[in-house]
Amino acid sequence: MTHTITLTVNGQKYTREVEPRLLLSDFLRHELGLTGTHVGCEHGVCGACTIMFDGESARSCLMFAVQADGHEITTVEGLAKDKDDLHPLQQSFWEAHGLQCGYCTPGILMTMIPFLKQNPNPTEDEIRHALSGNLCRCTGYQHVVDAVKLASEKMREIED
């Protein structure tokens, strides 16, 4: 049996029919065509599928689309206004070489946005701790840490 759900993704309202077993990650990618949310492991370990659910980071592979009825989701596509106007966190990843293949990047961004909101001036240790739930097979994390640090500086400047 399918269920009708209405949810907001990146500020836009969608109504769709879904089977209960459809994962939220697959719904975003295949139903809405928002393929920026990546899928690595489907058991909560890699972090590639991390989105913001009502403003808090969460694994989209560990939720069913039907659970998102009435909720608000932000995916990586919701960060930049357009390709020349990146979010400061995205801009910092560009400038500090925070990505190589980019597979892990959307999940890291969607983890770091709420993290930086709660910790506007994090230490390197805090950043590494906050990154522990996101696997990256390319960068060795150093440039990711640098990028988050740079972003925290940029974002504090904007705040001031």
Binding site: F53, S57, R59, L62, M63, T111, S132, G133
Partner: peptide, 9 residues
């Protein structure tokens, strides 16, 4: 317990 993303849920 786990990571913040997991503890959120």
């Amino acid at each position: 317990i786990a990571h913040p993303q997991i503890r959120n849920r």
